[in-house]
Structure formats: structure tokens, C-alpha cells
């Protein structure tokens, strides 16, 4: 069987074909996981888990019209489950993982408002956070977002409007009073 190297590993063609389909949206899955779970490590773990699940069902992945949307939905569900089980287990949720997010933080240091947006997004209610992530960061169509969140376009637009306004108000508040 012929071998190719992806992600620094020798893999056979079947894996190669699979990865060609699913690897292009790995960062999107990661960012979504990060938005929900906050911790970098947990987000990376979640991505790995989602890919294992996709790999186990690789024969059916071609049957999905949009593997990316499918994988996003899967990631969202997995991460929300993780979050729930963590809360149920009364474990402490780490809200900011500064040691890990330093690389990003350093990159955006030039504009100190950027780190703030990061933080403001974290504090949004779950649904608004997801909608803002899927629309403004990943630029999905309203219909796609509605499908991923098991919702409808109107509800998505309403949640999006609320999320954007909340972030705007908190930004203005921060600028006026310096409250973080």
C-alpha cells in the first residue's frame, strides 16, 4: 500500500484520502472547541476525539453533503457534553488559560482591545457565543449555522444581533470606565 506523510506521520492511502477531506477544517473545529471549553489543552483533546469519531465512521463521511458542517456540529455537541459533565462533576472550569494563549496574546499585543474581545466573547451566553463564533469568525451562512445549532435562521440572527450588541456595549463601557 502506498504511503504519504500528513501531519508528520507516514500514513497509508486510505488515511490520506480521509485526511484530505477532514484536515482542511481542523483549525475551525479547534477554534469552536476553544470557544466552548476555553482551555487550549481541552480544545485540542476535543479535536482529537472528534477526529477519532470521524475516522471510525469514515465510510459514511462521503455520504454527508457537507463534511465540514457535520464535523462542526459534532464538535459542538462533544464540547457541550464535556462542559456539562464537568459541571455535573463539580469540577473547576478554568476560564482563562493565559499561559497557553500567550502566543496569540503576544501576536495581538499591539492592539490591547483585541485581547478584550477575546475575553468578552468568553463571557457571552452559550448560544450567542456559538453564533458569533460561527458567523463572525468562521463566516458560515445563516442557514448553515441554523442547521449546526439545530435552530432556525431568525433565531440565529436574533442571537447574533444580541451577541454583537453585548460585545459593543461592553467595549464602550471598558473605554469609558476602564472596567475589565
Amino acid at each position: 500500500m502506498s504511503k504519504v506523510t500528513v501531519e508528520g506521520r507516514k500514513i497509508n492511502m486510505k488515511q490520506g484520502e480521509f485526511l484530505d477531506t477532514v484536515l482542511p477544517f481542523k483549525d475551525k473545529l479547534y477554534r469552536l472547541a476553544r470557544r466552548i471549553l476555553v482551555s487550549v489543552d481541552e480544545a485540542e483533546d476535543a479535536v482529537q476525539e472528534v477526529y477519532l469519531k470521524l475516522w471510525k465512521n469514515k465510510s459514511s463521511i462521503k455520504n454527508y453533503k457537507n463534511p465540514e458542517a457535520f464535523a462542526m456540529t459534532m464538535t459542538k455537541n462533544y464540547c457541550l457534553d464535556r462542559l456539562k459533565s464537568k459541571q455535573a462533576g463539580n469540577l473547576k472550569i478554568v476560564h482563562s488559560n493565559y499561559p497557553h494563549s500567550q502566543n496569540v496574546a503576544r501576536e495581538v499585543e499591539a492592539n490591547d482591545g483585541v485581547a478584550l474581545v477575546f475575553k468578552l466573547m468568553e463571557n457571552l451566553p452559550e448560544q450567542q457565543k456559538l453564533v458569533l463564533q460561527l458567523r463572525d469568525v468562521e463566516q458560515f451562512e445563516y442557514a448553515e449555522i441554523a442547521k449546526m445549532l439545530d435552530s432556525n435562521e431568525t433565531a440565529v440572527r436574533v442571537a447574533l444581533s444580541r451577541a454583537r450588541k453585548t460585545v459593543r456595549e461592553q467595549l464602550i463601557q471598558y473605554n469609558n470606565y476602564g472596567i475589565s
Partner: peptide, 10 residues
């Protein structure tokens, strides 16, 4: 900051 922040998150 809102828009540049989003670009950074991307």
C-alpha cells in the same frame, strides 16, 4: 477592537 479582535481570533 471588535473587528481587529475577530480577525485575530480567526
Amino acid at each position: 477592537p471588535l473587528f481587529t479582535g475577530i480577525v485575530a481570533v480567526q
